[in-house]
Design a binder for these strands. Structure first.
Length: 802
RNA sequence: GCAGAUAUGGCGGAACUGGUAGACGCACAGGACUUAAAAUCCUGCGAGGGUUAAACCUCGUCCCGGUUCGAUUCCGGGUAUCUGCACCA
C-alpha cells in the first residue's frame, strides 16, 4: 500500500489548525522561550513564490526542534501589505487596493497552510489593518516629538509626461516605465527620519549580536564611517567660504582645484559673480536627469564645467584654484563639495587629466605619477608640503588637523555615507502620516487619542498632478483643525513608505491584539529579543538597518527592553528558475508552489527545498531532483515493512543511530539542512541493507525527520503504535562515545600521494601503526632513503622519501 | 562604479580546525521482476592510460604563482557569475 500524501497531509493540517497545536503559550513562567522570525511576505498578486518556503521551512525546522527541546516557541506570521503593486493594480482596474490586498492575503494564507508550517496563526498581523498601523503612526509621532522626524527639501523622480512622482523602480533607463517620457529630479518638501543620529550606535552594537559576518560587513559598509577633516576654503571676491570634507587632509598642499555638486547652494548664492552662468545652468539641467547611482556608475567618462568669475583659495598655499561643477560629486555625501587632489585620488586624477588641470604630487612613494594617482596611505612620505615635509601620511594627517584647528580653518570630522531616511511617498496605499500643518503653529502631530488616522476612501487612485499623493485631492479629509490652537489647518497628504510597517512588526507579534499599547510590557520583556531572524540577503542593508534604528529609538524612550531587536540574523539564498535565472513572469520560468504540492505533497516540497543546496546560496529549481525526494519519502513510508520489535537500538545499528542524531542535531543549528537530508537518506539505505529496523530505531528516525517532513512522520508514529504526537515529544539524544568507530582504515601517503591504507584500532599505539605501515609499504620503501615520517593521529600516515 | 558573496564530475552538491576529493541525490548504462511498460530492487558511473579481469600509473576542485611532508581548504595576483545600491519589497 503506497503513501497517500494528500489524505495524510490534509488530516494533520486540519488537526493542527483546530487544536492550535503550534500557538505560543502565554505562560511567561516557562523561562525557556524561543522566538523565531521570518520576513513576513508582501502578498503579491502572483501568489507565493517558491523562494518564500525556503526560509519558512528552515526556521520551521528550528522551531519544531525547539518545541521538542522544551521551549515555549513563538513562530509567527503576518503580511506586509502596503505597497506599489496593489496600488498600480488599483489604478489600472479601478478596484480598491484594500480589496485586492484582502484577496491576495487569503490566497497566501491558504498556500502557506498547505505547506504545514508550524506558525502561530492566532497572532497574524497585517500592516494595512488600522488596528496595526495605529501603532506605526504612534511611533512616527514619538519620533517627531523627539526631533527625529523633520521636513526637508529632497528630490523625487518626476515624470514629465504623467506629471507624477515615480519610484526608482518605475524609472527605466531615465524614462518613465509607463509612458516613456523623460524623468527629471524635482525638489519636494518631504518628511525625513534622522537615522544618521544613530549611525555610530548602529555600528557599535553589532558587536553584541550574532549576525553572519557578511551581514555585519554589509551594515558597516552601508553606514560607511570615515574619519577625516572639514576644511574651509575662502572664495575670491566674496565673504562666502566653501567647506569640504576630506579623508586625506594630509594632501591639502596638493589640492589644485575644487569640485562642487551641481545642486550645491554656492551657485545660487554667487550667481551675480559667475560669468558663465548659462553653461553652468545647462550642466545642472543635464545632471538633474541622472540619479546618484547613474552618476557614480558612468564615471568612466567624467564631465564638468568650470565656474568662471570666482576662485577658491587653498588655505595652506594661499594660491587661487579654480572651482568646477561636476556630477561625480554627490550632493548627498559630505558637504557636496570636494577639494581635488589629482595626484592622490584616482577620480580626481581622471578628471584633471581630461580637463588639463595641474597635478601636484605631495606624497612620495613607489608610483609613477605621470601614469596614475598614488593612493597608498601606508608607505608614502610627504613632499612639497611645507611644514609636513618628510612625515609619514599618518603623522601628516594628525599634524595638519592640529594646524587647521589652531588656525580655525577646519576641524577633525567623522562622516558617514548613511543618509537620513526619506520617509514620504506621494502615494495612496500607505500609512497616512499623522501630521497637520497650521499657519500659526507649523507642523503639529494629531492627538494620540485620534489614532489610527485612517486612510480615507477614494475612488481615484491616480497620483496628483504635481507629484502629489492622491490624498491631495481629498479636500474633505485634508481640511481639519489644528490640534494645538484649533484654527483651520491641513493634513499631510504624503504617506509612509512600505518600510514603516516592517520596521516594528516583530514587536506586535508578541502581543498582537492589544488595543492599549503596541505590546504589553510583560510580553515584550518575555519574548525580547528575537532569538533567530532569517531573511533574504537582499534585505541585509535597508530593512535590517531601518528596523534596528526604530528599535533603538523605542529602547531610548523606554518602550522596548533591549537595545537590539535580533539576537541572531542569518540569510538564505534565492531560488532561481530551472535555467538558472531569476524567476519572473516575463521569462516564463516561474514555478508555482501549488502545483508542486499537488503533485508531490508538502513534505516532499519541504525536503526538496532543504536538500537542493547550501541554504545561504542561490539554487536553481530542478524537477528531476524533486522526484528523488519523493522517492526518498516513499522509502521512508515502506520502512514499516521491515519493522521489527525492540525497545533499544540493535547492536548493528547503534553506531549509525548515535552518529546520525549528532549530525542532524548540529546541522540544524548550522543551517546545513542539505547534509541533514543526506544523513536521513543514508540511514534509510542502511536500514534496507540490514533488511530490518526496530521500533526504537524507527521512532528516533521519524523524530529526527519530523521537523523536515512533519505530516508523514506523525502518521507513521501512529501507525507503528505510539499514542503521542511527535510535535512535542523529546528530541533524541546521543552518546558521544557511541559515535566513534573502533576500527578505522588509515590512509598511507608517500610524498603526499595516496599509496595505500592499513586497518588500525582507534587511538592505536604509534609504534605498532608504524610497523603495520612499513609492512604494507615494504616494496615501495625498498632501497629508499626515508627523510621523515608524519603520523597524524587517526587521520593519516605520510612517509617522505628521497 | 561601490559594497558583499560564489566558482568542485554530465547536473545539484559533500569534504570537521590543512590530512583518502567527489558523501547523498539526479541523469545515464547494464541486470532482476513483468507478456510488455511504469514502479520497484541490484550493480556500475571524474578524465586518460593499463589489464582477459584486476592490480597499478598519470592528470583533476575557475586561472597564474607561493607556503607546506601534504592545499578544494592558507597567502598574493587575476577571471567569470550572482546580490544590493537608499521611492520594489
Amino acid at each position: 500500500m503506497g503513501y497517500n500524501f494528500k489524505e495524510v497531509e490534509k488530516k494533520w493540517q486540519e488537526k493542527w489548525e483546530t487544536e492550535g497545536t503550534f500557538n505560543a503559550k502565554n505562560d511567561f513562567s516557562n523561562t525557556k522561550k524561543w522566538y523565531g522570525l521570518i520576513e513576513f511576505p508582501y502578498p503579491s498578486g502572483q501568489g507565493l513564490h517558491v523562494g518564500h518556503p525556503r526560509s519558512y521551512t528552515a526556521l520551521d525546522i528550528v522551531a519544531r526542534k525547539r518545541r521538542m527541546q522544551g521551549y515555549n516557541v513563538l513562530y509567527p506570521i503576518g503580511f506586509d501589505a502596503f505597497g506599489l503593486p496593489a496600488e498600480n493594480f488599483a489604478i489600472k482596474n479601478h478596484i480598491h487596493p484594500k480589496i485586492i490586498t484582502e484577496q491576495n492575503i487569503n490566497h497566501f494564507r491558504n498556500q502557506l497552510k498547505s505547506l504545514g508550517f508550524s506558525f502561530d496563526w492566532s497572532r497574524e498581523v497585517n500592516t494595512t489593518d488600522p488596528d496595526y498601523y495605529k501603532w506605526t503612526q504612534w511611533i512616527f509621532i514619538q519620533l517627531y516629538k523627539h526631533g527625529l522626524a523633520y521636513k526637508a527639501t529632497m528630490p523625487i523622480n518626476f515624470c514629465t509626461g504623467c506629471k507624477v512622482g515615480l519610484a526608482n523602480e518605475e524609472v527605466v533607463n531615465g524614462v518613465c516605465e509607463r509612458c516613456g517620457s523623460e524623468v527629471i529630479q524635482k525638489e519636494k518638501s518631504q518628511w525625513m527620519l534622522k537615522i544618521t543620529e544613530y549611525a555610530q550606535r548602529l555600528i557599535d552594537d553589532l558587536a553584541d549580536v550574532d549576525f553572519l559576518d557578511k551581514i555585519k560587513a554589509q551594515q558597516i559598509n552601508w553606514i560607511g564611517r570615515s574619519e577625516g577633516a572639514e576644511v574651509k576654503f575662502k572664495i575670491t571676491e566674496s565673504e562666502e567660504t566653501l567647506t569640504v570634507f576630506t579623508t586625506r587632509p594630509d594632501t591639502l598642499f596638493g589640492a589644485t582645484y575644487m569640485v562642487i555638486a551641481p545642486e550645491h547652494k554656492l551657485i545660487d548664492e554667487l550667481k551675480e559673480k559667475i560669468t558663465n552662468m548659462k553653461d553652468v545652468e545647462e550642466y545642472k539641467r543635464k545632471a538633474s536627469l541622472k540619479s546618484d547611482f547613474e552618476r557614480s556608475e558612468i564615471n568612466k567618462d567624467k564631465t564638468g564645467v568650470e565656474i568662471k568669475g570666482i576662485m577658491a583659495i587653498n588655505p595652506l598655499t594661499n594660491k587661487e584654484i579654480p572651482i568646477w561643477i561636476s556630477d561625480y560629486v554627490l550632493s548627498s555625501y559630505g558637504t557636496g563639495a570636494i577639494m581635488a587632489v589629482p595626484a592622490h585620488d584616482s577620480r580626481d586624477y581622471e578628471f584633471a587629466t581630461k580637463f588639463n588641470l595641474p597635478i601636484i604630487q605631495v606624497v612620495d612613494g613607489d608610483c609613477d605619477i605621470e601614469k596614475e594617482a598614488f593612493t597608498d596611505v601606508e608607505t608614502g612620505t610627504m613632499i612639497n608640503s611645507g611644514f609636513m615635509n618628510g612625515m609619514s601620511v599618518k603623522d601628516a594627517k594628525k599634524k595638519v588637523i592640529e594646524y587647521l584647528e589652531e588656525n580655525k580653518i577646519g576641524e577633525r570630522k567623522i562622516n558617514y555615507k548613511l543618509r537620513d531616511w526619506v520617509f514620504s511617498r506621494q502615494r495612496y496605499w500607505g500609512e497616512p502620516i499623522p501630521m497637520v500643518y497650521c499657519e500659526e503653529c507649523g507642523w503639529v502631530p494629531i492627538s494620540e487619542e485620534e489614532l489610527p488616522l485612517k486612510l480615507p476612501e477614494v475612488k481615484d487612485f491616480e497620483p496628483g498632478e504635481n507629484g502629489e499623493s492622491p490624498l491631495a485631492k481629498m479636500t474633505d479629509w485634508i481640511n481639519t483643525t489644528c490640534p494645538h490652537c484649533g484654527k483651520p489647518a491641513k493634513r499631510e497628504t504624503d504617506t509612509m513608505p512600505q518600510w514603516a510597517g516592517s520596521s516594528w512588526y516583530f514587536l506586535r507579534y508578541m502581543d498582537a491584539h492589544n488595543d492599549k499599547v503596541l505590546a504589553s510590557k510583560e510580553a515584550l520583556e518575555y519574548w525580547s529579543p528575537i532569538d533567530w531572524y532569517n531573511g533574504g540577503m537582499e534585505h541585509t542593508t535597508l530593512h535590517l538597518l531601518y528596523s534596528r534604528f526604530w528599535h533603538k529609538f523605542l529602547y531610548d524612550i523606554g518602550v522596548v527592553p533591549t537595545k537590539e531587536p535580533y539576537k541572531k540574523r542569518t540569510s538564505h539564498g534565492m531560488i532561481l528558475g530551472t535555467n538558472g535565472e531569476k524567476m519572473s513572469k516575463s521569462k516564463g520560468n516561474v514555478i508555482n508552489p501549488d502545483e508542486i504540492v499537488d503533485e508531490f505533497g508538502a513534505d516532499t516540497f519541504r525536503v526538496y527545498e532543504m536538500f537542493m543546496g547550501p541554504f545561504d546560496q542561490s539554487a536553481s529549481w530542478s524537477m528531476e531532483s524533486i522526484r528523488g525526494c519523493a522517492k526518498f519519502l516513499d522509502r521512508v513510508w515502506n520502512l514499516q515493512e521491515i519493522l521489527v520489535d525492540g525497545n533499544e537500538y540493535s547492536g548493528e545499528a547503534e553506531k549509525l543511530m548515535h552518529k546520525s542524531i549528532k549530525k542532524v542535531t548540529a546541522d540544524i543549528e548550522e543551517m546545513k539542512f542539505n547534509t541533514s537530508v543526506s544523513t536521513f537518506m543514508t540511514m534509510v539505505n542502511e536500514f534496507y541493507k540490514l533488511n530490518r529496523i526496530n521500533k526504537a530505531e524507527f521512532r528516533t528516525f521519524i523524530t529526527l525527520l519530523n521537523p523536515f517532513a512533519p505530516h508523514i512522520t506523525e502518521e507513521l508514529n501512529k501507525k507503528i503504535g505510539f499514542d503521542d504526537e511527535l510535535a512535542y515529544c523529546k528530541w533524541p539524544e546521543y552518546d558521544e562515545a557511541k559515535t566513534v568507530d573502533d576500527e578505522i582504515e588509515l590512509p598511507i601517503q608517500i610524498n603526499g600521494k595516496l599509496r595505500g591504507a592499513v586497518n588500525i584500532s582507534i587511538d592505536e599505539n604509534e609504534e605498532t601503526i608504524k610497523e603495520k605501515v612499513h609492512e604494507a609499504m615494504k616494496e615501495r620503501l625498498e632501497n629508499q632513503n626515508i627523510v621523515k615520517e608524519i603520523y597524524v593521529k587517526n587521520k593519516i600516515y605520510n612517509i617522505v622519501i628521497k
